[in-house]
């Protein structure tokens, strides 16, 4: 039976750990700049209904490294999408041209629709404010790879936790692996109640909540920084809280020696550039991990590993 990755919940913990083992092998190939031939007869279609250069290039690089080929489009420009074709019809057509589909679409639930109409595996590359499971995988993979385990860790997630999609599925996934969490966000941009309820009811997980990263930085093993957008807060509030969510080398002085810093990128000013040379700053390594993780996922969905 065809398997898709629409929601991080589609994968069991064991399946996630298995993917990470495969990603370790893929990492070695990427580091040596090798091109494998695992998927040499396969085609990946990248259907990007909204531009996300980083994610798309990462998918395409992964498929090329696996020895496969890539076709697709980015944004609605020049495709029949702008002529009003439904997603269902586009997917049915593209499934004839390819062996696996990666889709990014502005509407929530679109990846699920795609998986229902596709005869080939579908990977959700982001569906509006809902899910972005490959990002969650590479976040988890980076933490696990650096720390060796998740269950003994405390992780601080900071920034806009209300609208920040990546933080929701990351929090749930960390809870699945037994990690403890602290949330730092400006008033009004806290982690939504339904996420907190899921953490409580399904995982017996009770994160600490606060409004400043300084409240937690000394006690955590990893910091996952996200952006607070000016337009979400209003000018006065933004100015009031901006500095509470900026990770600078000064703030990093309070962190433990082995505390790692992650960010889904692109960053704006929420991590000062002077942190980049701190050996604890791992966000570029995290972005690198996007390729081996997607290689592992594509190869798995195609039944090649």
């Amino acid at each position: 039976m065809k398997k898709d990755l629409v929601n991080i919940k589609d994968l069991s913990n064991d399946e996630i750990l298995k993917l990470f083992d495969i990603a370790d092998e893929m990492s070695r190939a990427v580091e040596k700049k090798e091109r494998l031939d695992l998927c040499k007869n396969n085609i990946l279609a990248t259907l990007f209904y909204e531009a996300s250069t980083r994610t798309r290039l990462s998918f395409e690089s992964a498929m090329f490294r696996l020895g496969g080929s890539v076709l697709g489009f980015s944004s609605t420009e020049g495709s029949s999408v702008s002529k009003g074709e439904t997603l269902a019809d586009t997917i049915r057509t593209v499934a004839n041209y390819s062996d696996v589909i990666a889709i990014r679409h502005p509407n929530e639930g679109s990846a699920r629709v795609a998986s229902q109409y596709s005869s080939v595996p579908v990977i959700n590359g982001g569906d509006g404010g809902h899910q972005h499971p490959t990002q969650t995988l590479l976040d988890l993979y980076t933490i696990l790879k650096e720390k060796g385990s998740l269950s003994s860790l405390t992780i601080l997630i900071s920034g806009d936790l209300k609208f920040g999609r990546t933080t929701h599925s990351l929090a749930i996934s960390l809870a699945r692996f037994g990690a403890k969490m602290c949330f730092a966000s400006p008033p009004g941009l806290e982690m939504p109640e339904y996420i907190l309820r899921t953490l409580r009811e399904e995982f017996n997980n009770f994160p600490q909540e606060g409004t400043n990263i300084r409240d937690f930085i000394h006690q955590v093993d990893a910091i996952y920084v996200t952006r607070v957008q000016r337009e979400r807060l209003g000018e006065m509030e933004y100015l009031k809280y901006r500095d509470a969510y900026v990770l600078s080398s000064e703030v990093m002085k309070s962190a433990k020696h082995e505390t790692i810093v992650l960010h889904p990128l692109p960053r704006v000013n929420e991590i000062s550039r002077d942190v980049d040379k701190d050996p604890r700053a791992l966000y570029f390594k995290q972005a690198f991990n996007g390729v081996p993780i997607r290689m592992a996922l594509i190869a798995t969905l195609l039944g090649k590993v």
């Binding site: 439904t86 997603l87 269902a88 679409h105 502005p106 509407n107 929530e108 639930g109 679109s110 699920r112 629709v113 569906d127 509006g128 404010g129």
Partner: peptide, 12 residues
């Protein structure tokens, strides 16, 4: 009720 849900925008 989510106006950005694909079921609303494309009528599934």
């Amino acid at each position: 009720v989510n106006s950005r849900c694909i079921t609303n925008t494309e009528g599934y």
